[in-house]
Structures are given as C-alpha cells and as structure tokens.
C-alpha cells in the first residue's frame, strides 16, 4: 500500500533521518541523557504495567477482604498495576473512597496479593476512646500483622508514638542471616483509638551472601583510608565506628552519577560510621559508608543534615 505513495515515503524517510541526526547531535552536545542515568528524582515516580482482567479481579477480591478486616469503608477503585520507580517495587493498587470522606490506598503484591502497604487518609472517628498506649500497642499491632499473614514476632524492634502521623508505630525489622536489612520489615501504625492507620511490609529481594566475605579488619582499613584521603581524620572530634554487617540497597550517595533510585537488590555490606565536626560550633557531622562484603567497594551510604 505504501508503494502507492513513494514520494511521501521517501520524504518521510528523509525527515526521520534528519530527526535522528538532530537527536544524535543533541545527545552528543548535552552528554548523557536522563535514560542513560536510569531513573532520576525528576522523572515520574509511577509507571503503569500491563495487567490481565483475571489478575485485576483477583487483586480486587483480596483488597476487599483486607479492607473488611481493617474496617476500611468505601468502594474499591479499578485495580491498576504499577511500578514505584523510586522504591523499585511492582504492585497492584486499589483505592477506596467512602461517602464519609475517608480514603485508603492499598498496594498488593502482584503475584501473591499479600499486602505491601495500606495507608488510610481522612478523618478518624472522633468518638473513638483512646485505647492504645505504649504498653498495649505492640500486642494490638502484632494481631493486625498476623491477621494479614505478615511476619511479626513476639518482640517488635520499635514501638514509638509518631505525633505528626498521629499513630503508634510498631515495627519489626527484617533480618537475613542475623543481619538487619535496612528499610525492610513490617510496620503497623495504630491511632490512639485503635484504628489501623497504615500497614507496610517491605521484603526486598537479596543477592546471595558472599561465600568469603572480607573480614571486619579489612573493612576498617578501607574506611580509614577514605577518612584519611578526605581529611576527615584531621577534623575536630573525628571518630570511626566499628564495621557492622547489614543488608543494604546500594545508592548513589558516594557516586552521584548512578541512578537516583537505590538498587533493586539487597547486598551484604560492612557499614562504617564516621563523625567529625565539619563546621565550628555545629554538632558532629555523621557519614555512614557501606563497603561491599564481597569486594570492599563502596556501595553507597548516608549522612546527617
């Protein structure tokens, strides 16, 4: 059919070639494109993923059961499968909106339909008496977690009142082979009235632990070498902590050219904490670096503001 329009096709080809040349020149002039860098914080945070009707129906059914169990009112929206580019997770999203103005967002694992997160927005019931406190928050939160099939042991890692979020935050940090997985675990947030305000369950896939991890002493040597090279050792009140094994998602703290989203896999690393006074009169600045337990390379880290 296109053969009937040879001139148009030829012109189209020339235009296309021209555009490609322009794009190549632009890329050459501006250096790497955003896509070369991977996801950046300025890109859209969510992207849509394909989903079959059967998958959507299954997710919706599960979401409605969870909503009933948690007392979430309202009708569920259509299910959407998405990827959170920053968190690096895929999920089925269901939103609930009630006539009373209460809403909730639910993210479910696309394969198992286990809850990844439930966040409730909108007004709490003003008539709720305060029934949750420091002494019973853990037990109530554990019951909620277990009712959803989430791992919550006898002793939570932390029980805190979060005033800005308006809830008791009870969390269980995930541990792999006895080492904490930073950012992973289960958290249940309960209002004083006992309403479940949020549930999060994060289980990041992990790379295999290295067969022969570098010893703690080697990590300490590497850390000291960096501290010397960056002149941290010459700063007032310099101190270095002992290396500790943790599972981390490598980030771009040490190499800003890497993508803004942390790596999708947990890796075992030696975490080393440095502190020193960077600006006279300030409290010590703290920098944490993660050294790969496999080869000692810096996987990333963090610092205080």
């Amino acid at each position: 059919m296109n053969d009937h329009f040879p001139l148009r096709r030829a012109r189209g080809g020339r235009v296309l070639c021209g555009l490609l040349v322009c794009a190549a020149l632009l890329a050459a002039c501006t250096g790497a494109t955003a896509k070369d860098r991977g996801w950046t914080i300025h890109d859209p945070q969510w992207s849509a993923l394909p989903q079959s009707t059967a998958q959507a129906t299954a997710a919706r059914t599960r979401a409605m059961a969870i909503a009933r169990a948690l007392g979430i009112r309202g009708e569920p929206s259509a299910v959407r499968r998405e990827r959170d580019m920053m968190a690096g997770i895929d999920y089925d999203l269901v939103e609930f909106l009630s006539a009373a103005g209460e809403s909730a967002q639910m993210r479910l694992d696309p394969e198992t339909h286990a809850p990844i997160s439930v966040v409730r927005l909108g007004p709490p019931d003003p008539s709720e008496p305060a029934v949750v406190n420091a002494s019973n928050a853990a037990g109530r939160a554990r019951a909620v977690a277990q009712s959803l099939g989430l791992p919550a042991g006898a002793e939570p890692s932390s029980v805190k009142w979060d005033d800005a979020f308006g809830a008791w935050a009870v969390s269980w940090t995930r541990s792999i082979d006895g080492h904490p997985a930073l950012g992973d675990g289960v958290e249940v947030d309960l209002t004083r009235g006992g309403r479940v305000k949020a549930v999060t369950a994060t289980t990041t896939p992990s790379a295999p632990a290295p067969a022969n991890p570098i010893p703690s002493e080697r990590a300490a040597e590497l850390a000291t070498a960096i501290a010397t090279e960056r002149a941290w050792t010459a700063k007032p009140d310099y101190a270095r902590g002992d290396p500790e094994l943790v599972w981390v998602r490598a980030n771009n703290f040490w190499e800003p050219a890497k993508p803004d989203a942390p790596e999708a896999l947990l890796r075992l690393a030696w975490s080393v904490r440095f502190s020193f006074v960077a600006i006279a009169g300030d409290e010590p600045h703290v920098i944490v670096l993660w050294f790969s337990a496999a080869d000692g390379s810096v996987l990333g880290g963090n610092e205080t503001a």
């Binding site: 997160s117 966040v119 927005l121 979060d162 800005a164 979020f165 930073l182 950012g183």
Partner: peptide, 21 residues
Amino acid sequence: GEAFDLARKYTALPNGTLPTW
C-alpha cells in the same frame, strides 16, 4: 496533609529520620 501521610508511609526511613509538620 495527605501528601505528608503518603510520603511518610511510602518512604523507608531506616536511620530514624522523622519528618513532621
């Protein structure tokens, strides 16, 4: 307020960073 609540729960803060408003 909703943006705060959603960001609070969708962001891992394992070092204990505590946003408030």
